[in-house]
Write a protein that binds this DNA or RNA. Structure first.
Length: 331
DNA sequence: AAGAATCCCAACCGCAAGTTG
DNA sequence: GCAACTTGCGGTTGGGATTCT
C-alpha cells in the first residue's frame, strides 16, 4: 500500500484558500459531486491537489457544517465519547451533526484537554492524576498562605488571624472535597481500585471527617456541605452525600447544576431545591462506557441528552463558576 | 501605543486501511 | 496474491487574531 503522492507535484498551490477557489470547488461539487478527488481539481479548474480539495470541502465548504462555538451539550458529548473512544475524532464527529472531526479535534486540544489537565485529570484516561493528589498538602498550604497574605495579618489582631487562617484552611479543604467528589465519579467504574480507597483517608487527613465519621460507613450523611462554596456560607463539619463505593453510586445525588449561575448547592435533602440529579448515567443509559469519565464541567447546566441509540441520559454538571473557583483556589 | 505572549483554527503531513485491476 | 492507487484519519504546524504587559 503505497503512500499517496498527493501534493508533491510541482506547481500546485498550497495554503489558505481564496474565495474564488472556494467558489469553483463548491460549484463543481454541487453540480457533479466530488467523484474522484484526485481528478477533481483538474475538472474543476483548480490548481490544487485532490487531497487539499477534499479537506477544504469536508472541513469548511460543505453546506451542513455547523459553525460557531460548541454548546455545553456538545462539549459534554465530546467528553463522554472521548472517554470511550479516545482520539477517534471521526467517530466522535458522527455523534455531533454538523461538526467535523477537525473542528472537534481542535476544540479538544485547545479547550477540553487543558481544562482536564488543570483540574488534575489525565486527559487520556479521564482519571485523576496521581501527581495532583500528591501535591495536595502543598496546595492547601499555598491557599492558606495566600489568604493570610491578602489579609495583611501584621496589621490585624491575633484572634482574627487565627480565624482567617482557620477559614482559609477550611476553604481549601472544601475545595479538595469537591475534587474528591469528582474523583470518586471518575473511578466509580472500578470500585475496587486503590484510588477509591484513598478517599476516606484523604478526607480524614484534611480533617473534614473524623475517623469515627469515616467508620460510619459508606454513607456520609450530610445535608448541606457545599452550599454556596463561592460565598463563604458553607457549613463546617457537615458532610456530603457520598456513598462509596456502593453499587448505587450510579444514581447518587450531587451538585445541582440546575441554575447555571447559582452557587454550588449540594443535595440538601429536605431543601426545596434539592432536585436529585443522578451523578452518573444509569448503567443502561450510556454508550458502553468502559471507564467513567469526568465529563461534566464548563458552563453547562444540567441537561438531558440522547446517545446514539436514543437513550436519554441525565448528565451531571460542574458549573463554570465552580470551575473558576476551584482553579483560582489552587492556582 | 507597541511589542510580546498566547490563543485559535485552517491546512498540511504522513501513515494506514480500503479499493481496484 | 500483489502492487498501485484512493481515501480517511490523527497529529502537527503556521500564522492571523486576540490578550497581556
Amino acid at each position: 500500500m503505497g503512500r499517496s503522492p498527493c501534493c508533491d507535484e510541482n506547481g500546485l498551490k498550497k495554503g489558505p484558500w481564496a474565495a474564488e477557489e472556494d467558489q469553483k470547488l463548491t460549484e463543481y461539487i454541487v453540480k457533479n459531486g466530488h467523484g474522484s478527488w484526485r481528478t477533481l481539481p483538474k475538472l474543476a479548474g483548480l490548481n490544487r491537489c485532490g487531497k487539499s480539495c477534499r479537506l477544504r470541502w469536508t472541513n469548511y465548504l460543505r453546506s451542513d457544517i455547523k459553525r460557531g462555538k460548541f454548546t455545553p451539550e456538545e462539549e459534554q458529548t465530546i467528553l463522554q465519547l472521548h472517554s470511550v473512544l479516545g482520539n477517534k475524532w471521526s467517530a466522535i464527529a458522527k455523534h455531533l451533526p454538523g461538526r467535523t472531526d477537525n473542528e472537534i479535534k481542535n476544540f479538544w486540544n485547545t479547550h477540553l484537554k487543558k481544562k482536564l489537565i488543570q483540574m488534575g485529570f489525565d486527559p487520556m484516561t479521564h482519571r485523576p492524576r496521581a501527581d495532583f493528589f500528591a501535591a495536595l498538602p502543598q496546595l492547601i498550604a499555598l491557599a492558606n498562605l495566600r489568604k493570610l497574605v491578602e489579609q495583611r495579618p501584621w496589621e490585624d489582631n491575633t484572634s482574627s488571624h487565627l480565624q482567617l487562617q482557620a477559614d482559609a484552611v477550611q476553604a481549601a479543604k472544601l475545595d479538595y472535597l469537591q475534587c474528591l467528589l469528582q474523583s470518586a465519579a471518575a473511578i466509580v467504574s472500578s470500585p475496587t481500585s486503590s484510588s477509591i480507597k484513598t478517599i476516606p483517608t484523604d478526607l480524614e487527613q484534611i480533617g473534614l471527617l473524623s475517623p469515627s465519621q469515616m467508620s460510619s460507613s459508606s454513607s456520609l450523611s450530610s445535608p448541606r456541605i457545599l452550599e454556596s462554596i463561592n460565598g463563604q456560607d458553607f457549613l463546617t463539619g457537615q458532610l456530603p452525600d457520598i456513598q462509596i463505593p456502593s453499587s448505587s453510586f450510579y444514581e447518587q445525588p450531587i451538585i445541582n447544576g440546575g441554575n447555571q449561575n447559582s452557587d454550588y448547592t449540594a443535595n440538601n435533602g429536605a431543601g426545596e431545591n434539592s432536585t436529585h440529579k443522578p451523578l452518573f448515567m444509569s448503567e443502561n443509559s450510556l454508550p458502553p462506557l468502559a471507564d467513567f469519565p469526568i465529563c461534566n464541567f464548563g458552563d453547562a447546566c444540567s441537561t438531558s441528552r440522547s446517545d446514539a441509540d436514543g437513550h436519554s441520559a441525565q448528565l451531571p454538571i460542574w458549573s463554570e463558576s465552580f470551575y473558576d473557583h476551584f482553579m483560582s483556589e489552587f492556582a
